[in-house]
Nucleic acid binder design. Structure first.
Lengths: 192, 192
DNA sequence: CGCCCCTTTGATATTAATCAAGAACTGTGG
DNA sequence: CCACAGTTCTTGATTAATATCAAAGGGGCG
């Protein structure tokens, strides 16, 4: 009966298929509330876990509901966030359903970079994506091995350089093109 | 600035990847509001279309907001529905990302049957799923050809009989098992 | 009847998974 | 500082899953 707010670090929601295959459903950065749906749905059907060490805060559902009742703007922000989450989930379905491996991985990188940049967590051209390649596989529906080969290909093609999970974007236009990435679905507010 | 309520027929949300590959994101039956997110998000980034002839009703956002303000129970139902939608999207990501073709197709059938049954649109053991196999492919991230082979396999294995898009469930337990289907994510209210 | 759309089937090509092993890195304790 | 143990990354060889291409049947409908 509490919601979790990510304060720092990287978390994700996931589901298991047949107790063995993990699929990551969404990534959550500072400010996100991965289990917001717990407010309206009694029993959770998806897991939340940390991909890096994470610091979190808790807000009771009661408290959250109180805030929403007292401040309509807050309630609106909450539902808006829920809708954005849904929009991102939709893009992920398209990503795993209809994109090739290179496109999927590139898309994951584009999305992470764009979101982190919007949060001030990324530099103009480089950022830390602190997940393992196995995690990236679980996010894109690929095997860890294939993620590795795909990353190698992206590096060779010169759009990206990676050292110790720090990613440097060498050619954003081409990376975006590899990924078929259009940030509209993130519904970021026009550059503040 | 209107929301659409499905009154009858089958609709879906979808996205295109590179203008050529379609991915269906969700199915919508009578009572659903496929574009509810338009309430909080100004520009839609996903399409809605009919898979069968559909009758719809329109409600203006203003009206909807008025109803929500006047009747907290209604507002709650709305957000609850949005959360359930999100939960279903999550299961679809897992379906497309981590399941084999048979599992995906079987899962689509299990979900459709369960949802239609909950709405009184399906018989105890048979129902109409009025989408083409190409549509099923777009919903599961498979080619129409492979959907066909998979359906053939399901029919041969004796869990299902299909005539003219009318599906008869011959062995629900086994079908559910083929699909790795657990209806928890649908958050249906305990049998009324 | 004829046409169009959908389904079915076969042959082949492509994509990505799996298996296996070795290299590089991370952090740990001596 | 170094040896080490445990991950993670990388690479190769092989297999499995699914796409694509092509063409032939069916069914409904004007």
């Amino acid at each position: 009966s509490d919601c979790t707010v990510i304060v720092s670090g990287l978390a994700c929601r996931y589901k298991f298929v047949r107790e063995s295959r993990r699929q990551i459903l969404s990534l959550h950065f500072a400010g996100d509330i991965p289990d917001l749906d717990g407010l309206a749905l009694p029993k959770a059907d998806q897991g939340v876990c940390a991909l890096t060490p994470v610091t979190v805060a808790s807000i009771s559902h009661a408290h959250l509901r109180g805030l929403a009742a007292a401040h309509p703007t807050f309630a609106e922000a909450l539902t808006r966030q829920a809708m954005v989450d849904g929009s991102i989930l939709g893009e992920w379905i398209a990503n795993v359903g209809r994109r090739f491996a290179v496109e999927r991985v590139a898309h994951l990188i584009c999305e992470s970079f764009t979101r982190m940049r919007a949060l001030g967590l990324a530099d103009a051209d480089s950022f830390d994506l602190p997940m393992t390649q196995a995690d990236m596989g679980d996010a894109t529906g690929l095997s860890n091995v294939h993620v590795n080969r795909t990353m190698t290909a992206l590096k060779k093609s010169g759009v990206l350089a990676v050292t110790r999970r720090s990613h440097r974007i060498l050619d954003w236009a081409r990376l975006r093109d590899h990924a078929d990435f259009n940030p509209a679905y993130l519904h970021l507010l026009p550059a503040a």
